[in-house]
Amino acid sequence: MPQQVRGVIARGKGEPVRVETIVVPDPGPGEAVVKVQACGVCHTDLHYRDGGINDDFPFLLGHEAAGVVESVGDGVTEVAPGDFVILNWRAVCGQCRSCRRGRPQYCFATHNAKQPMTLLDGTPLSPALGIGAFADKTLVAAGQCTKVDPAASPAAAGLLGCGVMAGLGAAVNTGGVGRGDSVAVIGCGGVGNAAVMGARLAGAAKIIAVDIDDRKLATALRLGATHTVNSATADAVEEIRALTGGNGADVVIEAVGRPETYKQAFYARDLAGTVVLVGVPTPEMTLELPLLDVFGRGGALKSSWYGDCLPSRDFPLLIDLYLQGRLDLDAFVSETIALDQVEEAFARMHGGDVLRSVVML
């Protein structure tokens, strides 16, 4: 029987979000209803509210979540009621050309629940990243649920569902950071600092954090950076080269998503080094580089989408490392808040005052 629960709704571009009653249908074939325990407040949710993703209002916001499976539809074998899960926005199909080639992390046909959640008047909701987890319960495709050890804190575990996985994966999966490498991370918000943590986890010898905010640089040091550069007062490229024997870093991760910082990343890498773009640009941005420089420097220019992760592989592993004390996910939880405090959390996030506010349900 459909359930009525609370959810955070963005009704129009730039309008303050508000808590409203929403209707969650029973799960159909291949679907699951999840009772949400915690959901992080991510920049992507703010982009949805501000119309930066698309204009399919009203949106049910929230996507960086962990919770417990309440019920499943026909044909679901991945999870069962009672499982503690992290939600992901890339349920792989298993059938596309990438999946058939053994590269499901690059699946071309990821999917979400087929049934809509709605407002009380029947208006369909657009769930953020196909999840919509600023709600007591949400309906997702069963493949969007990854079972992990229930001993993990929901507030910390849910952050793997987006930002932390994006940054950590940019270093470990996309950048291929290895033991003894030098790494520079440009932009030290939640995603950038997760990249710092990923580089440390991978055994990088030198990790250079770059930002214009000393608060974020201090956090980067706590999470594993060995050096910091405030690019508001120093030339980031020159400083990174000076810290790497004049050569540049083996891997430079750009976690801002702007042409200016991408150029810094390009010129701050070593010859045949790797640049990873994980910061999300806006549609109007363009990049211009001398083609001879692209040709002459060799190496690799990569983009990292969701940290090139495969949730079924990566989430359980990272939760195990967290429970072993080797991955400090708790460090990303700046504060816990109630469902009706999301709008205020957007303001704190925009001001750089938090790594993550986490809604607890």
Rank of each mutant, 00 (worst) to 15 (best):
T77N: 13
R241S: 12
Q264S: 13
A65K: 12
R179Y: 14
F134L: 07
C107K: 09
A225P: 06
F134S: 10
G62F: 11
P311S: 00
I9F: 06
K114V: 14
G7V: 00
G52Y: 11
M349V: 08
H43E: 02
A195Q: 05
V229C: 05
Q3P: 07
G167V: 01
P58G: 02
E260Q: 14
H47C: 14
V33K: 02
H111C: 01
A218M: 08
R326E: 06
L289F: 05
R6W: 03
T286H: 05
V19W: 03
R49P: 11
A234P: 03
I337W: 06
G187E: 02
R313D: 04
V177S: 09
G94S: 02
E15S: 15
E288P: 01
V92C: 10
E284K: 15
M285D: 03
R100A: 14
Q264N: 10
T123V: 12
V358P: 03
V333K: 01
E239F: 13
T219S: 14
P283E: 11
H227I: 08
A65H: 11
G351E: 04
D213V: 15
D320A: 15
S334F: 02
G122N: 04
V251R: 00
V294R: 01
P316G: 04
A157T: 04
D211R: 13
L125W: 00
V183W: 01
A218E: 12
A268L: 01
A209S: 11
A38V: 09
K13A: 15
L323Y: 06
V92M: 09
H47Y: 14
I22A: 09
R200K: 15
L168F: 13
V275W: 07
G279M: 12
K35D: 14
V333T: 04
L292P: 08
A272H: 13
P127I: 05
T219Y: 14
D83F: 09
I253E: 08
P58W: 00
G102T: 00
A225C: 11
H227D: 14
G279F: 13
I319F: 12
F59S: 01
A209L: 04
A268Y: 00
A113V: 13
V275P: 10
H43I: 06
Q264C: 08
